[in-house]
């Protein structure tokens, strides 16, 4: 079996969950080789090994943090030259997609973005995607070059499969373009203590019906009773009631949790685009005609300020 490069997404060596999903998917099509860029490989390597990385190619340089995207493309290209992989898997973040796309062009390879599943196939890996606001499911293949695929969070359940995970240094020489875009400052997001929106098993969202930033605590309380992440519609975000990082939909995050609870959200196509693939969908909305009800497994027609606190209370009581 050939080797599959997996670009590791991490914060100072703490490997993020989507990377473990990628390692799990990579094992279906070959032997995972993790590419770790930046500081913290000592922390990351044991985790990567546990999830099946036979090798960890590591490179650390100031360029990765000081300049946008291109240094990582240079590094991934060096890794591709070193191992001649059968595929390259990259987490489907905004940055991940840009890295993957530039790499694919350099390798003369096709690209598939935002895959929700990757399986082996006769003509190479087959990627599943949700398109047209998730109203269609497609299966696609790369026909030229080394398949480069970006994979969305929550696409597979990470499975441990211990492997050697030997760390090897990756030599990277940066090209002229690497230092083109300088990162002047970086302000990390403050942690809310809640799960990551894209990784959460349960997402509780609020829309225009929440009617003010001061009311979002109703949504947060429900989320906390379930250990869920908090999402918001664009209407709620544009009104300044909740941060843009929490927006669900076409121009926000796309989520695919086990359970999605939409409160005071009408269910516009652009919102559906980001949540339609959730396993179970629940909505609370006072308008019985709201399109969100076309999607739900369970819906309550009612005032969210009555229904949601009662639900929260009931959950808390049941948990005892």
């Amino acid at each position: 079996m050939g080797e599959v490069l997996v670009l590791v997404d991490h914060v100072d060596g703490a490997v993020r969950k989507p990377t473990l999903e990628l390692l799990t998917l990579a094992r279906r099509i070959g032997e995972p080789v993790a590419v770790f860029l930046g500081a913290g490989v000592d922390t990351a390597a044991p985790v990567l090994a546990e999830y099946g990385a036979v090798k960890v190619l590591a490179a650390d340089a100031a360029e990765f943090a000081d300049y946008l995207v291109v240094p990582k493309v240079d590094a991934l290209q060096a890794a591709a030259q070193a191992v001649e992989p059968v595929a390259v898997l990259v987490p489907s973040s905004a940055e991940g997609k840009e890295i993957a796309a530039r790499l694919a062009l350099r390798l003369g390879s096709g690209i598939i973005t935002d895959a929700t599943d990757v399986e082996p196939g006769e003509g190479g890996p087959v990627a599943t995607q949700a398109v047209f606001a998730a109203s269609f499911t497609t299966k696609s293949r790369i026909t030229t070059g080394v398949p480069v695929i970006t994979v969305k969070p929550n696409s597979a359940a990470p499975e441990a499969a211990p492997a050697a995970g030997t760390v090897e240094q990756l030599a990277v020489s940066f090209g002229e373009l690497a230092t083109g875009t300088k990162v002047l400052t970086r302000t990390p997001r403050e942690s809310t203590g809640r799960p990551e929106l894209t990784e959460a098993a349960i997402v509780v969202s609020g829309g225009r019906g929440v009617n003010g930033a001061e009311n979002f605590h109703v949504i947060e309380a429900l989320a906390d009773s379930l250990g869920a992440a908090v999402g918001a519609s664009r209407a709620a975000v544009d009104a300044g009631w909740y941060p843009h990082t929490n927006q669900v939909g076409q121009t926000g995050k796309s989520v695919s949790p086990q359970l999605y609870i939409a409160n005071g959200i009408s269910g516009a196509i652009q919102h559906r685009a980001g949540m339609q693939t959730s396993k179970t969908i629940v909505a609370v909305n006072k308008d019985a005609e709201a399109p969100i009800f076309d999607l739900v497994d369970y819906g309550v027609v009612g005032d969210l300020f009555q229904v949601v606190p009662q639900l929260t209370e009931e959950i808390t009581a049941r948990k005892g």
């Binding site: 003369g108 096709g110 499911t137 696609s140 076309d294 229904v307 639900l311």
Partner: peptide, 28 residues
């Protein structure tokens, strides 16, 4: 093109869920 779509299927409409009107017990 360097990639190809082999298959496109319309996502089946979600099966109609249960919808209740809140008469004071909706949350429960």
């Amino acid at each position: 093109s360097w990639s190809t779509v082999d298959e496109a299927t319309q996502r089946p409409a979600r099966t109609a869920g249960t919808i209740v009107k809140d008469e004071g017990e909706g949350g429960k």
